[in-house]
Design a protein around this nucleic acid. Sequence first.
DNA 1: AACAAAAATGAGACTTAATCTCATTTACTG
DNA 2: CAGTAAATGAGATTAAGTCTCATTTTTGTT
Lengths: 144, 144
Amino acid sequence: MDNSRKILTDRKVSITNPRILVLEELLGTKNPITVDELLSKLENKVAKSTLYRVLNDLKNINILNEFSTPDNQSVVELILEDHTHHHHLFCSDCGEIIDVEMAKEFENKLSKEIKRIEKEFNFIIEDHRLELFGKCTDLCLNCK
Amino acid sequence: MDNSRKILTDRKVSITNPRILVLEELLGTKNPITVDELLSKLENKVAKSTLYRVLNDLKNINILNEFSTPDNQSVVELILEDHTHHHHLFCSDCGEIIDVEMAKEFENKLSKEIKRIEKEFNFIIEDHRLELFGKCTDLCLNCK
DNA sequence: AACAAAAATGAGACTTAATCTCATTTACTG
DNA sequence: CAGTAAATGAGATTAAGTCTCATTTTTGTT
């Protein structure tokens, strides 16, 4: 049984062609991908309404992370077991979105600071997101 | 000359009624406000197309910060001289968005970590954004 | 393997935030 | 205060995302 089928069965989600196609597309990209890109890659294979439904299914079983680019494009990425906690780096030149792992030491500091904020604001903080905006330099493959 | 007029003249932007109305609304709220809320507050005073144009003007003169809520509502806030670097806290119960200043020590750590990432990824990082998601506890005025 | 019930899909209508167009109005300059 | 450039209002347009519903596919049961 291949990877995408296993992902679905393991989570008791029925195996359908659109789900497999979407999963395979997502498994095939290391970095996050815009929903728009996904749509065009799956054009003629999966209906638009179905794509959005499948993305929703994946969110419901907690294996899909969704966020937005600075210019408000919707972006998704799979978060499976092997996908550790990370943040995102956005290039305003080429649009590339890169997964970034922060140093453990920094993440510890952040956790502590979040605890402090929880007390200060009487809040329960369940999640956080750190986004870095900038530009690839000349070494970036995308920006040439 | 009142505050909103001064903001415009200082930045060589012509003084018009819609711009003053939008600025006054933004000056009147401590925390960020959704564009939707702005629209309804200014209904019958400023046309929808004009509101979006004015928000764009404010972005162009770098005094408006725009971002999105977890459910993808567009949010804006003025960033004037007195508005120091800060992040946002989102309550998933009441929708409140709260400005949060992190401890200076933490921000220093973050700066260092960003420098490290710039080298690792050969990137020039120009900006960053940290978002915290959670729930107000029973002490929150909005959540009762 | 065939069946029935339940679930998922495709196609396109619909919604809604945001942008665009263009005729009219307003703001600034001399 | 007149002329020109800039800004506005109203409504048309666009596009991302949702919804509807008839048809197809999946799955559990024999």
